[in-house]
Amino acid sequence: MYQRRTNQIVLSALQSQAAVVLLGPRQVGKTTLAMEIAEQRPSVYLDMERDADRQVLTEPDLYLDEQAGRLVILDEVQQMPGLFKSLRGQIDMRRRKGFRAGQFLLLGSASNVLLHQSAESLAGRVRYIEMPPFLLDEVGRERQNDLWLRGGFPDSFQAENDSASIGWREDFLRTYLERDIPALGPRIPVTTLRRFWTMLAHAQGGLLNAAALAEGLGVSGQTVGRYLDLLVDLMLVRRLQPWHENVGKRLVKSPKVFVRDSGLVHALLGLGSMESLLGHPVVGGSWEGFCIETLIASAPAGTEPYFYRTAAGAELDLVLRLPGNETWAIEIKRTTTPKVSRGFHLAVEDIGATRKLLVYAGEHEVPASNGLQAVPLARAVEHLRARW
């Protein structure tokens, strides 16, 4: 078992907030974490995908009144949107009885759906926390290549061998396509959505070209947008937005698109070993996406991620605006030579970066010119963790 950083974040939030919403894709470890917390305090666990547990909440106030003083854990809570009004009343009633914090832990795997459902009813009563797959500082830097190849879903990362790992990821993709996504309501042919997801993996880290995707799928650009919104909502794909604050610069306006888990990128492309990955054209985009997800997840809460690119050639792979108005400019290269282009320095000046990092494939931290630091990924994570 690996100790998850999210565990301490949730425990801390439960000490100050009445309700905590833990978001993350399926199989990322939310339920395991919740059950660990449940062992430490009086708790009750209900899974909203089980008919028996849904029946318990047919009259939610009658049941929840009996649980006052316990932590109520509701898994896949987006399955019962009508529950949120009852939760608001329960929180307010319990406050009057002296139970102020740590009342509800809500787990969900569809972020926008759940945020929309809870925003109106639980405003001021809830904290949202996203649980990522395994992170580099959770599994150790000696397993960096395993984490990159297999991705961070626990069952994939901890599989007995690479073959078993990619087999698990194939099953994961099939389950999402055939069961989980249809359960949300969209009527999308499985083969079409699989092709779309695979096209995103081939173009990992590229600018969104909805017209080209639509032409390849034989659908409209609007339909491509709907497919993308769905995968973003399920926290399986990231739309990395461009930095947009430089007046007078011709900035790229299209977002970059990444399949968020590197292991899913490789499963979609049939890359089951490090040898096959290193020989594939996606290797650079895969490494960039892996680093970007790792760095965003390691940054302090409230950090805003962007990329930067101008028509003149100034470019940054990742811009992190940290709380306190710090702006970090980050370049990512799968090379052992710590060098950046002139476009990097131009972009740093454009955005007024307060810190400059080059994440590269070497093993040592190397100071470069103009305040630039070349660091391994694990060291960049440590720099970000120091800002928590």
Rank of each mutant, 00 (worst) to 15 (best):
L184D: 07
S109N: 11
L193C: 11
L114G: 07
D146S: 01
G152I: 00
L114M: 13
A201P: 03
L107C: 09
G140Q: 04
A110M: 06
G124C: 14
W197V: 09
M131E: 01
P182N: 02
V219Y: 14
L106M: 12
D155W: 08
G151S: 02
L231D: 07
F134V: 00
I166L: 15
R226E: 02
T198P: 06
A110D: 06
R141M: 05
S220K: 04
S156Q: 06
D233V: 03
T192L: 15
A119H: 10
T192Q: 14
E215V: 09
R169Y: 06
R179W: 00
L184F: 06
R143N: 09
N161G: 11
H116S: 13
G218S: 09
N145F: 08
T191A: 15
R195C: 04
D171C: 05
E138A: 01
L213C: 06
A119L: 05
Q144L: 09
A123F: 11
Y227W: 05
H116V: 11
A164T: 11
L200A: 08
G205H: 02
A201F: 03
R169D: 11
S163K: 15
S118D: 01
F134A: 04
R226P: 00
Y176N: 01
N246I: 14
P132E: 01
S163N: 14
D162P: 07
Q144I: 01
A183L: 09
T198R: 15
E160C: 07
A110I: 04
W168T: 08
D171T: 12
S109W: 06
M131T: 00
R195W: 04
F196Q: 07
R141E: 14
V232H: 07
A123N: 12
L173N: 01
A211T: 15
R125I: 09
V190R: 15
L149T: 00
G221L: 02
G108T: 04
R174K: 07
D146L: 03
A210H: 08
L213T: 05
L234S: 09
Q222G: 08
N209T: 05
V232S: 08
I188C: 10
